[in-house]
Computed example of a mutant assay.
Amino acid sequence: MSGGAPLPVPVKGEDIVILNIDDIKKTASKNLPVTAREFFNSGSTYQTTIAENSAAFDKYRLRSRVLVDVSSLNTSTTCLGQPIKFPLCIAPAGLQAMAHPDGELATARACSSFGVNMGISSYANYSTGDITAAGGHGISYAMQLYPMRNRQLQERIIQRAEAAGCKAILLTGDSPVLGVRYNEWRNDFRTPEGLSFPNLERTSEVIRETTHDSGFMQYNDDSHSWARDIAWLRGKTKMQIWIKGILTAEDTNLAIRHGCDGIIVSNHGGRQLDGAPATLDALLECVEAARGRIPVHMDGGIRRGSDIFVALALGAECVWVGRPVIWGLAYKGQEGVEKVLQVLYEDFRRCMALCGCRGVEEITRDCLARMTADGLLVRCKL
C-alpha cells in the first residue's frame, strides 16, 4: 500500500504504452525511414553539442519543498501577447510532412487544442496561411526567417506571414552556412518527392534537383549583419523581431542595441557549430546580460517537464521544443503531438508542485542546486 491507496496494477495489451518523450521517440524512430530518421535526429559533425543539450540538465538538482499549499497551482504564462497553458512553444522545424502527411497542419491543430504558440519554419511543407488556418486564432504564431539574397522573396514571405496573423519574425542568425552534417552527406539527403516549400516558393521538382545543403546555400545570404538586416526588417513589418541563435552576452547586448523584441538562446538543435555550448549552459550568460530589458527564451534538449522548470529557474521566460514534436508526428500525427504536449505539461506541473511553486513567477534559482567538482551539493542562489 502507498499512503493508504492501492498500488496501481499495470495492464499489458497490444497497444504501446507511452509514458515519456523517450517512449515516443523510440516508436517514432521505428516508423521513419532511415534517411528521414537520421535527418531529424542527428546533429552536426561529431554530435557533441546535440548530446550536451540534454546532458546539461543533469548538472542540476531540484530543491523539493514540503507542506506548501499547491491546490491552486497555475502553470500559465503569456508569450507573444497570448496567454498559454504553460511556458512552452513549438519551435519552427521544417519538413514536418516527412514525419506525417499532415505535417505542420497537424502540429498547428495540436497547439491550438492544447493552448500553446507555434513557430512556422521557412521550410514548412504547407503555406503559412494554411497552417494558421488549421490552428485557428486562439494561439500566436511566429514566422522563422533566414537572411536571404532575394529580398523580394523575403518580403513576400513577410507579407504572407502578416496576412496570416503571425505576431513575430524569428530571424535565425546562426546559419551563414550550414553545419557539417555527415549523415545528410552520406545519405545524399534530398527532400522526398512530392513535398514542396511553399513559403520559399519552391516546388518538389526544383527542390529535388539539389541536396538540402546546396539548396540552402542558393538563397541564404552570408553577408547578413545586425545593422543592415534588423533595420531592413523594421522597414518592412510591424511584427515583433526576435533573434534565434543567440549564445553569448555580446550578441544579447547587440540584440538590445538594435531594438529587437526578444531573443531565443539556441544552437539550432546542435545542427550548426559542433562544440558550441549547450543552450542551458549559455542561458545564464545571456539572461545576466539582458538584465530584464528584453525577454529571453531558449530551446534545445528539452525532454522532460523538469527541464522546462530548470530553464525557467535559470531565467528563461519560456522554452521552445522541436524534435519531440517531430517524434509526436511520426508516432501518431496530431494525436502524437498532443501526447508530447500532455507528457511535458503533466511533468512540469508535477515538478512545480513538488518544488512548492504555485505559479511560474515563483520558479527561481533558489529552486535549484548543483553538484560541485568535489561532490558537494550547492544552492544556485539568486
Results as ranks from 00 to 15, higher is better:
366 D>H: 13
266 S>A: 11
241 I>Q: 08
253 N>F: 06
91 A>I: 01
297 H>N: 07
94 G>M: 04
232 W>S: 04
11 V>D: 05
314 L>N: 09
235 G>C: 03
340 V>G: 03
360 V>P: 01
229 D>Q: 06
103 G>Q: 04
259 G>Q: 06
130 D>K: 15
160 R>E: 15
79 C>H: 14
137 H>V: 11
63 R>D: 05
226 W>F: 01
295 P>Y: 05
359 G>H: 09
184 E>K: 06
25 K>W: 01
194 G>M: 03
61 R>K: 13
232 W>E: 08
71 S>N: 09
98 M>C: 13
265 V>S: 12
302 I>K: 04
364 T>P: 04
244 K>N: 10
26 K>H: 13
135 G>S: 02
286 C>E: 10
374 D>L: 09
266 S>F: 01
267 N>T: 10
174 D>A: 13
382 L>H: 10
37 R>I: 04
152 Q>S: 15
370 R>L: 08
172 T>V: 07
28 A>D: 02
14 E>A: 10
321 V>I: 15
103 G>C: 06
282 A>N: 11
368 L>H: 12
178 L>N: 12
224 H>Y: 08
77 T>V: 12
328 G>N: 03
338 E>W: 03
198 P>V: 12
266 S>M: 03
59 K>R: 15
380 C>F: 12
165 G>F: 05
200 L>Y: 08
86 F>K: 01
91 A>L: 09
133 A>E: 10
270 G>P: 12
153 L>D: 07
13 G>I: 02
35 T>N: 15
71 S>I: 01
381 K>S: 14
269 G>W: 00
165 G>H: 04
